[in-house]
Design a protein around this nucleic acid. Sequence first.
DNA 1: TAGATTGTTAATCGATTAACAATC
DNA 2: TAGATTGTTAATCGATTAACAATC
Lengths: 211, 211
Amino acid sequence: MKNAIEGVSAQTLKRIPTYLTYLEEQKALGKEYISTPIIANAMGLSEILVKKDLTSILTTSGKPKVGHNIQNVIDEIKYFLGVHNETKAILVGAGQLGSALLGYKGFDKWNIKIEAAFDKNEKSSSKKTGNIAIMNVNKLRDYLLNNDIQIGIIATPVEAAQAICNIFVDCGIKGIWNFAPLVLQTPDDVVVQNENLASSLAILSKRLQSK
Amino acid sequence: MKNAIEGVSAQTLKRIPTYLTYLEEQKALGKEYISTPIIANAMGLSEILVKKDLTSILTTSGKPKVGHNIQNVIDEIKYFLGVHNETKAILVGAGQLGSALLGYKGFDKWNIKIEAAFDKNEKSSSKKTGNIAIMNVNKLRDYLLNNDIQIGIIATPVEAAQAICNIFVDCGIKGIWNFAPLVLQTPDDVVVQNENLASSLAILSKRLQSK
DNA sequence: TAGATTGTTAATCGATTAACAATC
DNA sequence: TAGATTGTTAATCGATTAACAATC
């Protein structure tokens, strides 16, 4: 997450999806235009930061005294994030967390699809997991070699995570979303995004205690 | 997340739980001492950054040529993060994601307990949710006023999230862990940590596409 | 001892904020 | 027009990296 992407800083990139969420809320309320001071105030950011963020991704200009056309900004953010290209993911580890991810509807909005799921134990798909069959993990390598998958999701127990990660890397996966609490060892060209729920909550707890 | 806490920068704070995870892995392998170059290499950070991070929280010194006593660093990190104080949380929204959080064992390590759960529909607790009864959400306010709870977790659909947040704030909750994809409106003294799974995955997808 | 590692001080880099001219 | 908001350039702030003396 260190380097800027297409002139957009790492910090800006993290905020972009939040702008999209907020702008879609406002659009749903029937608003057509919005100014940076209003966005900044609602999201708890400085006005100048919002201006910088928006100008770094927008190809069109806002109108002085009026602001930006909401629909236009939404479209530009989606284009920037590549929402028009479908991203295909597979998930390993269909326990409680993995099942929750399989059933999560929020990925649709970003045009990200979980195509298949794997577990130590095969399971028949329940209605809640969106009818994705859960295959035995021994079929993982074969599946990856025969399908065009961009992202691997690790929702296994920590003991299994590095082994699954190794299979991902062997099969050419370049993006890993990791929910297991360990430091995965990967080659430099693989992007790993760690989602450690427990440590996120621990950080929140610390911030609270320090007030 | 802007301001430094007790001389520890926001960025350092985010890395601290990861150090703990890594050090506990190494301790489990039977190692007694570890040096910053080794930690840095394993975690993909620069050596100097690791030295700075550790010196900002440690009260004791490492030994030249040997490194730091792993157990000691673990203890100091835990003390810094306040793991010795139990943090009490409640959860609202016992759908798939909420249930996964209720069943998640990783919070124990940080001495964080989810004391109660609420949903629009009462449900009998299943074995998997650690025997936490799921109460009707209309009992939420009463529960918060009669129990000492530090953190509220929002795992509801987006439509319900702001209303739940308002109840939290009314009842004096100062820390909110929010999984609903919206920008919550709260007073300045409330710490909100957003965990937007879909947008995290979208950012990973973008980083991949830009390589 | 020699040298790896320590902790710290100074330099660089990146991100945010301040200031301001342009414009509808 | 007046003034709110735009986009941009310069200044500040914070975080990371480089350099180095101290030490076991």
